[in-house]
């Protein structure tokens, strides 16, 4: 549930002018808030399950 609330808020925020300091990295080729929304939108909705399910056996 906390997930959903956070995502709603981020959608609202994306429509407002950004009050964040301009991100230092790279060239702002696209709107940064839109980029965060794009990244958000393709991630699994259940973050906890995505992280929990990955357990690597073995390795050097």
């Amino acid at each position: 549930m906390a997930e959903r609330i956070q995502r709603q808020r981020s959608t609202q925020r994306a429509e407002e002018p950004s009050t964040e300091a301009t991100p230092a990295v790279g060239k702002p080729a696209v709107d940064y808030d839109a980029l965060l929304d794009e990244i958000d939108s393709v991630l699994e909705t259940d973050a906890e399950e995505y992280v929990r399910s990955f357990v690597q056996k073995g390795g050097q």
Partner: peptide, 22 residues
């Protein structure tokens, strides 16, 4: 930079699962 942006935007502590997910 990406993690800090999500932390600021959504008020996430470093142990929030979405940061480990990212």
């Amino acid at each position: 930079d990406l993690l800090q942006s999500f932390r600021r935007r959504d008020d996430l502590a470093w142990d929030h699962p979405r940061l480990a997910q990212l």
